[in-house]
Design a protein around this nucleic acid. Structure first.
Lengths: 340, 340
DNA sequence: TATTACTACACAAACGTTTGTGTAGCTGAT
DNA sequence: ATCAGCTACACAAACGTTTGTGTAGTAATA
């Protein structure tokens, strides 16, 4: 900047204001500055600016992990929206551990991020570590896995609706004894998916049967275990809706191992629309989570918050609508061909 | 820091040096400073330090994308090793686009990252945008997809060895007409995999047949297309080795669609050991890439480089050994059962 | 004519650290 | 007695921006 100022015979103030399009700089001067900046290949030092302004162009993201489809896709969406707004993204993983989550939040604050986007770790039950974020006036947005009670800004999928769609779909296929593989109840998403399952049953006048609802951590193994348990029931089931695709995959593997036909004998539906749902045989019906939209929405929310830094807190929540992808594991055509 | 200095009646210099364990500060003073810092919950402003030192505790990473298994896992490894060394990671995607890659590198430099780790975009053919990184004295490490000719520090998989193992395995199963689905030749990895394939054939005294080598972008569709092309050959093949798992998946789908038995009629092997290789039927044999080790190695290399900032440039390369995961799509037991 | 308002710019302080240089007292070797 | 080499600390200048305040000159309004 000093070079530019010297070259043009103006002060650094003028340079700075010209570059940031300040109103008190004449259009002609702005042009001259911009042109010379390009010519000298001037690279602004964001660090200095951040230091002075107490705020950087970095956006901090904390996720439990970045495997599978969901979180990478959300991050993808975040990245895209953020870079459009001139922000860079810094991603941390909590590895499903509150302690690491706390450390991550500290790290991000120390990096003077402009905002923090968080999806909670599985075992996060208290939320004091986020107070510091708020008290520093840094916009805070939760996505997907959000604190159950706290007053926070968040963007979530309508998990209940997704589960309801999937379960209703199974009902429409003629299934009546539908089991549910549920996830840890203290995570909002699993709670809502379970509720959607129950609501769909209720709409068909079916009383919920607790022995058909199996709660676990939703891994493939958990799904397999649960499926075996369900097969051992005296009265056979005719469908399974799982709150996650890994679990339903485990279930599918058990069924195939025992020669039980899917969907003819038992229909399956999962949640997340993971990549492998289109690879298994039969392909798995699943609820798509609008991952990228979720990322974009989170960034949008952040931008709104940071546009009005000290506006009084108003809780905002964006709710995305899921979409059911019907595949072979539950398809009607196949069911009727199965001659049930 | 000013608070600390005032409280203890010393200068800020002393505080700063005490905190960074400078030799010219007495042990007693250091203790006092550290204790008070903890008590007042002093949070260092890394930005200011970075500005002053011209270097932050951020590590920049540029990858083509973060889907599938490979890059997320590498990033995982990077993250782990970096945080152990007190660095945070900032990830950018080039989306396989040189232009974006260039922009990403600029962004990272502007963020004053301490180092840059890069895996090249598919269409990156010139490397001027990395000169700026070097000229600023910022350590630069390439991983997996590296510039073919340039003198650079890098960590790569022994792709040739992996391909050789896979092809030799197919040969050991009795296959003799083995096709190869190759990737873009200007990317080192695909070149080496192709070479490994050729070397394995040579070791068995088999002359390469150009009509059996099909080059593409290695998507699932590409794999399917290639498989159809191979099936149309006058002389039938008995195995396919693909330089990527997506392509071999496409091939598998075509084979199953046509009722051709795998591995009895045609054996398959892929590369990457993607998650879905254990889900398909039959499960797919594939070469594992040691993703996390690659990330760790890249960080280690970076740390070495930044430990000796202005040492004369010595090209360093870490070569990781791949591991072949043999699964049903190529298993001997099944082959012999197939009665060939 | 006086007041206000706007344009166009410069001065200099601030952001929170790090670090080269300076100083003073002390120890041990020459 | 002198010098070198240590320890232990303070001063003040940097790092590259942003921004409140000040100062002119010009135009519009009262």
């Amino acid at each position: 900047m000093a070079d530019l100022a010297r070259e043009l015979g103006v002060s650094m103030t003028t340079i700075s204001r010209a570059l940031s399009d300040h109103h008190s700089i004449g259009a002609a001067t702005k042009q001259r500055v911009l042109k010379l900046a390009k010519k000298l290949n001037y690279q602004p030092n964001h660090l200095a600016a951040a230091l002075r302004k107490g705020q950087s162009r970095l956006l901090g993201v904390v996720v439990p992990y970045i495997e599978g489809k969901f979180f990478p896709s959300v991050i993808q969406g975040i990245e895209q929206a953020a870079s459009k707004a001139g922000f860079s993204v810094i991603v941390c993983q909590s590895h499903e551990d509150v302690q690491l989550e706390r450390r991550n939040v500290e790290t991000l604050l120390n990096a003077q991020v402009a905002g923090v986007l968080v999806s909670l770790a599985r075992n996060t039950q208290d939320f004091y570590h986020f107070d510091k974020v708020r008290s520093r006036g840094v916009p805070l947005v939760f996505f997907d896995r959000i604190p159950p009670t706290e007053q926070v800004n968040s963007v979530v999928l309508n998990d209940r609706e997704g589960a309801l769609q999937a379960t209703r779909h199974l009902l429409e296929q003629g299934c009546r004894r539908i089991a549910h593989l549920a996830g840890p109840a203290h995570l909002n998403i699993y709670q809502h998916r379970r509720q959607g399952y129950l609501d769909a049953l209720a709409a068909y006048g079916i009383a919920p049967d607790e022995s058909l609802i199996i709660t676990s951590d939703m891994t493939t193994d958990d799904g397999a275990r649960a499926m075996r348990q369900l097969l051992a029931l005296p009265e056979p089931i005719d469908a399974v809706f799982a709150a996650g695709d890994s679990a339903i995959l485990g279930a599918l593997q058990v069924l195939k191992g025992q020669g039980i036909r899917v969907p003819q004998d038992i229909a399956l539906a999962g949640f997340s629309n993971e990549g492998f749902t289109a690879i298994t045989e039969p392909q798995l019906t699943s609820v798509d989570q609008r991952c990228e939209e979720m990322g974009e929405a989170a960034v949008r929310l952040f931008l709104e918050l940071s546009a009005a830094p000290d506006a009084p807190f108003v809780q905002r929540q964006v709710v995305l609508q899921p979409e059911l992808f019907v595949r072979e594991s539950s398809r009607q055509g196949v069911l009727s061909l199965g001659g049930r």
